[in-house]
Design a binder for these strands. Structure first.
Length: 468
RNA sequence: GGCGCCGUACCCAAGUGGUAAGGGAGAGGUCUGCAAAACCUUUAUGCACCGGUUCGAAUCCGGUCGGCGCCUCCA
């Protein structure tokens, strides 16, 4: 069975074949670090993590490159959110560089909390200005640029493949429909490679270049860095759907114009949006929803990961507190059941057999079919509820499944030891129950609950578990 | 204004021609001193609405209404 992925280039599901057997090179668009990542951003990184985990599960060695864009969007412009950052930077006496570092750290901390495996290479835009200048020079040498109003522009008419990814009809692109026209452009789709003449004041980061002191355009960093680390041709490029029309379209133009190699990237994968309540999303209210805002309410980061696994990556996912609660309950129930398997299991075989093996195979085929995680999850639940699957077999299969899901199903269900004092209380309660002193027994149970220990009396005796 | 996507039970959500996965929540029951957990049963003759194609449609086509995304930094 092979991996099949939906390729935005062709708008269809294709068999995935890597350029080099057993090795996958993938580039994932990273954050622009001028603010905290919100949960919608994080959904996309979770999607990319599922892709990476599945590739690795299937035996590929994955080179996973991610940029951190710490230039370009850090100065003031008309956007209110950015004003706020500048304001807070000023208030806190931080430079834009410090702001970038702060939000970069916050970003990776979020990913760690979500058990998103870190990229093999993380590259900062400001460390690669010379690479960007070099790439612009190559594009210029091939005759795809012009200089106007002090800025270096990419001439989209010089690049016949322009807009293929987005399936743009260039004739019908309407300039200035929602934004002012840049008078320097020959064609509305043209875009800046290098600015020397900023439309923003207070530009905080500038570098020398053959075209004058200035800073790079919005799209060049991804082309330059991905090509630096992955070469002129590589397997997968992914990001959010919002990147298709402009960012990725322009990245392709830049890369292919410079090298003449087509296609530059073979598979383009895009994650759909998490849809929030309008109120919650309102920028004017300033309450973008972050992962920490969820954990502050008592959710575990992994509740959010589980929630994201409930929808397919190419469908919009409707976020609501109720939906997150449902994910939380489901996840905790899953952990409880697995913990129970672990108590009942003898030794867990390295590979599952029989029915468990069949479930694993079913699960894997759903994952291989364009990462149909919701279906894979339903297979996991079916296996868990199938009384014909012995616990040690189920555990063996779950171990493999979780390598793709990344829910910590094995790590978070290990047997724990209870403090001696608490164990003694449980024994005391059981003695009380034997003597039919239920008042005493219930008092102890309530006391333990206050200390985070829940008791369940079963036919095999009393079990305890920690409140989550 | 242009391009594209979506509308499935109380909620989230799979399902793209063959008769509605899964999870959460709710209801009833078994078990239990009680509780919890678990288990059993139950919750869409119907998939926004209207019309069409077909032996057969949630799935294809047309229209209507509603929601979302991109066209501007954006996951």
């Amino acid at each position: 069975m092979s991996l099949r992925l939906f390729n935005t280039l062709t708008r269809s599901v294709e068999d995935f074949v890597s350029l080099e057997a057993g090795r996958v090179q993938m580039y994932a668009c990273g954050p622009t670090v001028y603010n905290y990542a919100h949960i919608g951003n994080l959904r996309t990184y979770i999607f990319e993590d599922l892709l990476r985990r599945t590739l690795e599960y299937l035996g590929y060695s994955v080179e996973h490159v991610m940029n951190v864009t710490d230039v370009g969007h850090l100065t003031d412009d008309a956007d209110e959110g950015e004003d706020k950052v500048i304001r807070s930077a000023r208030e806190q006496g931080m430079t834009v560089w410090e702001i970038a570092e702060h939000f970069t750290n916050a970003f990776f901390s979020d990913l760690d909390n979500l058990d998103v495996i870190r990229p093999t290479i993380v590259c900062k835009a400001t460390d690669h200005i010379q690479d960007m200048i070099g790439l612009i020079e190559r594009i210029e040498a091939k005759g795809h640029t012009y200089i106007s109003g002090g800025n270096v522009y990419f001439d989209v008419t010089s690049f016949p493949h322009y807009g293929e990814l987005a399936m743009l009809d260039r004739q019908n692109l309407q300039a200035g429909a929602r934004v002012g026209v840049d008078e320097n452009k020959r064609n509305p789709a043209d875009f800046v490679l290098w600015f020397t003449n900023s439309k923003f004041e207070r530009q905080a980061m500038v570098w020398d270049s053959p075209w004058g002191r200035g800073y790079p355009g919005w799209h060049i960093e991804c082309s330059a860095m991905s090509m630096k680390y992955l070469g002129d041709k590589f397997d997968i490029h992914c990001g959010g759907v919002d990147h298709i029309n402009v960012h990725h379209t322009n990245e392709i133009a830049q890369a292919e114009a410079a090298t003449g190699v087509h296609p530059w990237v073979r598979y383009w994968l895009h994650g759909e949006f998490l849809v929030l309540d309008k109120d919650k999303m309102s920028k004017s209210l300033g309450n973008i929803m972050t992962l920490s805002s969820l954990t502050e309410k008592g959710y575990d980061s992994m509740d959010f990961r589980y929630f994201c696994l409930g929808g397919h990556y190419r469908s919009q996912l409707q976020f609501s507190p109720e939906a997150l609660d449902a994910a939380r309950s489901a996840r905790l129930s899953l952990l409880d059941r697995i913990a129970d398997f672990r108590r009942r299991a003898d030794s867990v075989p390295e590979h599952p057999e029989g029915k468990a093996a069949a479930y694993l195979s079913d699960f894997t085929s759903r994952m291989q079919d364009d990462l149909h995680v919701p279906q894979a999850l339903s297979v996991l639940w079916k296996m868990i509820k199938d009384t014909q699957v012995p616990p040690e077999q189920a555990l063996s299969a779950i171990g493999f499944m979780d390598r793709m899901l990344g829910l910590g199903l094995i790590e978070n269900t290990a047997e724990e030891n209870l403090e001696e004092e608490l164990s003694r209380l449980i024994e005391e309660r059981n003695a009380a129950r034997k003597n039919r002193d239920f008042e005493r027994a219930d008092t102890i149970r309530e006391d333990l609950e206050k200390r985070g220990i829940l008791l369940e009396d079963g036919p095999d005796g009393t079990r305890w578990k920690r409140k989550r």
